[in-house]
């Protein structure tokens, strides 16, 4: 679509950023250093038309020992989505709070703190629980949290429950004797 490479050059001119990955005509991702995130967001919002923050999400890169944070921005005039990615340390997950840029950020950061244990110092109400009340275990969306084990230990599983793989179950019950499936 529009000149995303020019935009990348514009941003790169000011901040150190990684390669541009264009997924679709209307969706692209930029990688960016952790410390530059607030500045890059403000620059994109104020000068490039990415005025809308769609969401902030986190991906647990357990193997690399990192959390990947994605800030998804939307340019309504150009009808273009831009994701700003950054990596933070998994052992000491602290990220600078950007609640001053968009009011909604505080809520996303509250959720990220609850689900992944990422700290956002200075964010309003970040200590309050978001979806989980009185959660005492480790952050449940981390990949090293065994949710099945936790559920079995906590919630009195009813004995006798059987779990079937849908594909195998369908083969057995609906199409018995079909070797080609």
């Amino acid at each position: 679509m529009n000149d995303m490479n020019a935009l990348r050059a514009e941003v790169d001119h000011r901040y150190k950023i990684g390669e541009l990955v264009e997924k679709r005509d209307d969706l692209a991702f930029l990688e960016c250093g952790k410390v530059d995130i607030p500045d890059v967001l403000v620059y994109l919002r104020d000068h490039q038309g990415y005025v809308h923050l769609s969401f902030i999400t986190c991906i647990d890169r357990l193997e690399e020992g990192q959390f990947e944070l994605v800030y998804m921005l939307r340019n309504h005039e150009a009808k273009h989505d831009l994701g700003i990615k950054t990596y933070i340390d998994r052992e000491n997950p602290v990220m600078e709070s950007t609640h001053g840029h968009w009011a909604a950020v505080a809520t996303y950061q509250r959720e990220l703190r609850e689900m992944f244990g990422i700290e956002f110092p200075g964010c309003p109400r970040v200590e309050e629980s978001f979806a989980l009340e009185s959660w005492e275990g480790p952050p449940p969306m981390r990949r090293d949290f065994d949710t099945k084990k936790y559920s079995e230990e906590t919630y009195f599983p009813r004995p006798g429950r059987e779990t079937n793989d849908p594909a195998d179950h369908m083969k057995k019950t609906q199409y018995p004797g079909r070797a080609d499936l």
């Binding site: 449940p140 949290f145 949710t147 559920s151 009195f156 599983p157 009813r158």
Partner: peptide
Amino acid sequence: TVNGGMYWDSYNTINRLDQ
């Protein structure tokens, strides 16, 4: 409510209501 249904291994959903 019987045994957790599709949320049987969820970290936040009860499995058996009668408990």
